[in-house]
Structures are given as structure tokens and as C-alpha cells.
């Protein structure tokens, strides 16, 4: 039977970049798994735990909570780091992400030669060895952390979980994600990188 694959062929199949429909279904699968395990699918609250661990609970009531109730999320997040390590070292794609020619051409104007950073990150813009790279990393991280907590959720919490539960606040938050994302991409980034 052609359909039956041996383990090596399975591994090769898994290492290919996945079709968007397979990827979307896999993300929904993780949502179901987390829901069945009695927890919500949300990542950004992990930053709140980091604040607690760093001692913010002594300065501000918002960070005063029982960390034990958040262990599961920290385990999930550290699993994500491990999953990234495994994927990077044992499941390498044969080729970088097949992004559109239009994007590749436009990025040349910013001095980005695709596929730098394995097709995952423009390392010429975001380098830990440049002042600009570090400042942008801090600024971007700050906006994500602030916005996620003010909105009480990030992409996983609102765009996936919240929408799956048909929550209007989540839909409005996702619209906000796109207002911010489009403003950054079309107005601000051309000023920073152009």
C-alpha cells in the first residue's frame, strides 16, 4: 500500500512546511486539548507571572496572586521553547518559508536579503549586537506586553479562544490588533527601516 508510510517517511512528511489548512486545524486541535484539560489557551498571562516572580507583587496588587495556579501555563510556555528547539534541530524544513515575491522585493529596499535568519527573522534589522535592534526589541516587546494585559489576552486568548467562544470583546480586540498592525507596517516601519 502506497498510503502506509514507514517512520522515516512520516518524519519527512512532518518536516515539510505544512499547508495553511493543516496548520489551522492543528492550532484548533491545541485549543481543544487545552480546553479538555480544563484550561484556556492563552500565552500572554505568563508575563504577569514573570512580574510576580521578579517581585512586582510587593509593589502592586495586580501581581499579587497565587503563582501555583499559573504553573500549568508556565509549563506550557517552557514546552513551547522546547518545541521550538526540537523543530529547529530535528524537523528542519528543506526550504525556507515560501513568502511572496512582492514581499521579498519590497524588503530589499530595507536592506533585508530574504531568506536571512532561516526565513524566520530579518536578523539585519533585529540584532542583539546593535543598539537599534535592542531598542526596537524592547519597544516592540513593551507594546505587546502592555497591550496584551490591558486587553486581557493576546492572539491565542482573543483571536483563537475568544472568537471560538463567540466573544464580542475579543472580536473588537482583534480589530484593534489589525489597526495597530497595519499602522506599524504601512506608516511607522517605513520611517524606521526605509
Amino acid at each position: 500500500m502506497e498510503l502506509i508510510l514507514n517512520p522515516q517517511e512520516w518524519w519527512q512528511l512532518l518536516s515539510q512546511p505544512w499547508h495553511w489548512a493543516v496548520s489551522g486545524a492543528a492550532i484548533a486541535g491545541i485549543l481543544f486539548l487545552m480546553t479538555w484539560m480544563g484550561r484556556s489557551f492563552g500565552v500572554s498571562t505568563a508575563f504577569k507571572s514573570f512580574c510576580h516572580i521578579a517581585g512586582a507583587d510587593k509593589h502592586c496588587d495586580f501581581f499579587n496572586f497565587d503563582l501555583k495556579n499559573e504553573y500549568w501555563r508556565l509549563a506550557f510556555v517552557f514546552g513551547g521553547v522546547a518545541g521550538g528547539f526540537i523543530a529547529a534541530n530535528f524537523l528542519q524544513s528543506p526550504e525556507p518559508a515560501a513568502i511572496s515575491e512582492a514581499t521579498i522585493t519590497h524588503l530589499k529596499d530595507w536592506g533585508v536579503n530574504y531568506p536571512e535568519g532561516n526565513g524566520l527573522l530579518p536578523t539585519s534589522l533585529f540584532s542583539i549586537f546593535t543598539v537599534k535592534g535592542v531598542l526596537l526589541a524592547l519597544l516592540g516587546g513593551f507594546l505587546v506586553g502592555f497591550g496584551a494585559r490591558y486587553g486581557d489576552g493576546c492572539t491565542s486568548g482573543h483571536a483563537i479562544s475568544g472568537l471560538a467562544h463567540l466573544q464580542l470583546p475579543s472580536l473588537i480586540t482583534v480589530i484593534g490588533f489589525f489597526i495597530g498592525g497595519l499602522t506599524m507596517t504601512w506608516l511607522i516601519m517605513p520611517m524606521i527601516f526605509g
Binding site: V43, S44, A46, F47, V77, F78, G80, V81, A82, G83, G84, F85, I86, A87, A88, N118, L120, L121, F126, L136, A137, L139, G140, G141, F142, L143, V144, G145, F146, G147, A148, Y150, G151, D152, C154, T155, S156, H158, I172, T173, V174, I175, G176, F177, F178, I179, G180, G181, L182, T183, M184, T185, I188, M189
Partner: peptide
Amino acid sequence: AGTAFGLGWALLGACPGPMFVMLGH
């Protein structure tokens, strides 16, 4: 809140989940 988040998401090309996965990379 969504707009602040979106500004950072587009700049970094990563939301919180991918931040941890990229660290693993």
C-alpha cells in the same frame, strides 16, 4: 489595547506564543 498590541506584533513579527518558540530556535 488591541492597537498597542498590534503595533508591537507587526514590528516584531511575533506575538507572545511565537516569542517563546523563537527563543527555542
